[in-house]
Nucleic acid binder design. Structure first.
Lengths: 161, 161
DNA sequence: ATGCATAGTAAGCTACGCTTACAATAAGCC
DNA sequence: GGCTTATTGTAAGCGTAGCTTACTATGCAT
């Protein structure tokens, strides 16, 4: 019956998986004694791929608010894993770099991540995994668009779409 | 380089999608004036499919701790959407039922959920969605197993795997 | 120079989950 | 029966991951 919503609907399953994944990742990171939260780990990994970017850029790539990123950076900086250097081209801005000390940590995070995902995806073929990853990226793109809409609804007006 | 972890790895994308999905759902529910948080909505929907179960059972099905569920139930009960009835067979236990007042709300949640997912999955064919849902359920099952392992590691011992 | 825009941050809030400790009850065992 | 142990639900308090709002410092355009 339609009065019995399916708890296995895609959205619910997705959220279930994400919650469990995060908590499993947290447990792994804690066990490995890395001393980071999953969010900090995620941030550090992102920074490593965006070496020398501004905070706004990083935040946007990560899909979080600049303030949220700033908090993570405070923590990562106090641990000595990243640096904030003034942008010579704009004295308001700061450029973010990982420190040499972060190298081993990033590798460890990577290892934990890979091992966990191997466990979690066991029983699913590589082509299917690739497909899922691809479609999830599509979902993410759709969600990004959605957020932009709701952030600037005044511009949308009755433009019809 | 292997020293540059891919921020588009399956795990990261999954967590991204889940975060955005939850926040989009939150926005929708808030806009619709349902007066619930996404977690409460998720709980209510689950209860509707498990009418008359014990709290422990529901918590287990939802993959959360009994205490976490208890908090949601407090809130849902104070809003008049669920009832806790004593279990005639066990005076420690309580059985959870939705109230008639919850019917319309559950339908609304369902609507919001469906509309959101239609938006978010636009551009992906139904067969592919079905496949993704299926594989995600597999991931969820793997994650459940993982949690049980870490909850009772003493039993696992060197039992081979 | 004046006025608006932009980069980062301080302060404080919400949602979602957890652990630990406990009361009440049930169930197994002599 | 009486004792011990297990189980159900809950009170209290914590941590993580985000957000918004308001502010400072700086840049840019007129």
């Amino acid at each position: 019956m339609s009065s019995r919503p399916d708890p296995d609907a895609l959205g619910f399953v997705l959220i279930d998986v994400a919650r469990m994944l995060r908590s499993a990742f947290e447990r792994r990171i804690a066990t490995a004694g890395l001393g980071l939260t999953p969010g900090e780990a995620r941030t550090l990994v992102r920074i490593a791929t965006l070496e020398g970017s501004r905070q706004l850029d990083i935040a946007q790539r990560m899909g979080i608010e600049p303030m949220t990123l700033s908090t993570y950076l405070d923590r990562l900086q106090s641990l000595g894993f990243i640096e904030r250097r003034p942008d010579p081209a704009d004295r308001r801005a700061k450029l973010i770099f990982t420190t040499p000390a972060a190298g081993a940590l990033i590798a460890s995070i990577r290892t934990e991540q890979v091992e966990l995902m191997e466990h979690v995806t066991s029983g699913i073929g590589p082509e299917e995994l690739e497909l899922i990853r691809d479609r999830l990226k599509r979902l993410r793109a759709n969600l990004c668009a959605l957020e932009e809409d709701s952030a600037a609804p005044a511009l949308a007006k009755d433009a019809g779409r």
